[in-house]
């Protein structure tokens, strides 16, 4: 009878071990063929010390696919392995504040400054921007199309009590949205204002299904557009710029931080070659770039 038990254990063990064998060096073959053919840079020998760099970033950089292009490039160049933890900006900044990440790539300028002032992050540098847009159903029940400013559009939505889906997750986009409500002198409350508590992709899907308005970054919207019945109703307002900064987590405050790795990634993000890649990212798929490189420009944010 024990053979049954042994057989069952074998099934499990095979499952566990089978998964084990072909698992050699996880990232060794990950840089895409494209990048290695474009750039005949020989892989740099592995840096001394900690090879792992923890990047805390926002979901938008991951969901748009930008990191899938940049990270293999970085790993190929430097020999580091990047552990990308894509979360809301709130959580990404909190990870920095607790020293649980090495480098941050986020888009919430006001909150970022606080983290720098607190001493948790250093060397904050401008990387790129894209912009926020207001999307909604084609019928545009609150008639916000043609508004002169975002503030005006938000006031119209509130007045018409038209459904608005907020992320409500303390992300960069959520913070931006709350700033805009404040500027419009409206306290968003009531059944027309719903918080999804999820990421941008999910929130867009919900808005699309329910026929509501929402504030989104352009990149995520373009990436998801094919599944959405939402159109752009407002864009181009200066207050809608979505600016990304890269910051290193302060190794003096958190001794376990991979200082060299964090710095290497931050430097990589503002490197002219990387900036070129950012400028062209998305053109082939969406016909327009998703991000605009800003490194070296005066940082007015």
């Amino acid at each position: 009878m024990k053979k049954y038990l042994i057989f069952a254990l074998c099934v499990l063990a095979t499952a566990a071990l089978f998964g084990c064998t072909p698992k050699a060096q996880p990232q060794s073959n990950s840089p895409t063929e494209e990048s290695s053919s474009k750039e005949p840079v020989p892989p740099v020998s592995a840096p001394a010390g900690n090879k792992d760099v923890i990047l805390a970033t926002t979901t938008s950089t991951q969901d748009s696919g930008l990191l899938d292009v940049l990270i293999p490039l970085f790993e190929q160049k430097t020999g580091y392995r990047v552990k990308t933890v894509a979360v809301g900006t709130g959580q990404a900044l909190a990870m920095g504040e607790r020293g649980e990440a090495d480098v941050l790539l986020v888009h919430a300028p006001e909150a970022e400054k606080k983290v720098v002032v607190s001493g948790a992050a250093i060397n904050r540098r401008l990387v790129m921007h894209n912009d926020f847009i207001i999307v909604g159903p084609k019928e545009d029940p609150a008639k916000i199309k043609g508004s002169r400013s975002t503030v005006e559009a938000f006031q119209k939505i509130a007045k018409a009590k038209a459904l608005f889906i907020s992320r409500g997750d303390d992300s960069g986009t959520n913070k931006k949205e709350l700033e805009l409500w404040k500027a419009a002198q409206i306290e968003p409350k009531g059944s027309w204002y719903q918080e999804s508590g999820t990421g941008m992709g999910q929130t867009l899907t919900i808005a699309s299904e329910k026929g509501g308005y929402t504030l989104t970054d352009r990149a995520t919207y373009l990436a998801l557009k094919k599944n959405l019945s939402l159109v752009i109703l407002l864009e181009g307002d200066k207050s809608l710029l979505n600016v990304y900064h890269v910051m290193q987590v302060n190794p003096e405050k958190f001794p376990r931080v991979n200082a060299a790795g964090g710095k290497a990634f931050a430097d990589f993000m503002v490197d002219p070659e990387t900036q070129k890649v950012i400028a062209s990212f998305g053109k082939d798929k969406f016909g327009e770039p998703l991000f605009f490189p800003d490194a070296g420009k005066p940082d007015i944010y």
């Binding site: 990950s30 969901d63 552990k83 990308t84 933890v85 998801l224």
Partner: peptide, 24 residues
């Protein structure tokens, strides 16, 4: 795990990512 590509990405976390990318 952090859903790190090629390292800690398992089926369920990959599914979540693909959903949020809109690749249904």
């Amino acid at each position: 795990g952090g859903n790190v590509r090629g390292y800690t990405r398992v089926l369920t976390t990959a599914i979540v990512l693909e959903v949020s990318k809109g690749n249904f």
